[in-house]
């Protein structure tokens, strides 16, 4: 987890506006090392995505999307659990981090969850999470 944390800190540095693809790539490679990789990686990513610093959160969303495209089934099954989906939902909810997160971050989180409903139709929990957000009026069509 230490190495994952170091790559992620560098990849989400809020003082840098450009994407650091080298660090993002290293982080994704590190996710696949060891059985705990996906679990730790998602825990670290959730924390960064919840950051009140817009740039840090947006960088973290880019890292997340790169991982979804590059990491395997173990990462996908872990991100499709309520444990991680709840962390994303907290960014959208005014009862949680929604009061600090910017509209830009919130709309990207919504896009990410929506895109997963399309790419991973077999993941029932993703569909449930999205339906709940719609029912609560947090996601508008």
């Amino acid at each position: 987890p230490g190495q994952l944390q170091r790559w992620l800190n560098e990849a989400t540095d809020p003082s840098v506006s450009e994407e650091n693809w080298e660090c993002i790539q290293r982080f994704c490679e590190q996710v696949n090392v060891g059985t705990e990789g996906p679990l730790f990686a998602l825990r670290l990513l959730a924390h960064k995505i919840q950051s009140p610093q817009e740039r840090e959160a947006l960088h973290a969303l880019t890292v997340l999307e790169t991982c979804v495209n590059n990491c395997g089934d173990r990462f996908h099954s872990e991100m499709a659990k309520f444990r991680f989906l709840n962390e994303l939902i907290k960014v959208l909810s005014p009862k949680y981090y929604g009061i600090w997160s910017s509209e830009k971050v919130k709309s990207r989180v919504t896009e990410v969850i929506f895109s997963w409903t399309v790419w991973f139709p077999q993941e029932v929990k993703i569909q449930d999470a999205y339906q709940m957000l719609k029912k609560q009026g947090i996601v508008k069509e």
């Binding site: 059985t35 705990e36 659990k81 309520f82 444990r83 709840n86 939902i89 909810s93 929990k125 709940m132």
Partner: peptide, 15 residues
């Protein structure tokens, strides 16, 4: 040998 991999999950957050 048993893995430490945690397969458990939470419930969907009620907001």
């Amino acid at each position: 040998t048993a893995s430490f991999h945690d397969d458990s999950d939470e419930d969907l957050l009620n907001i």
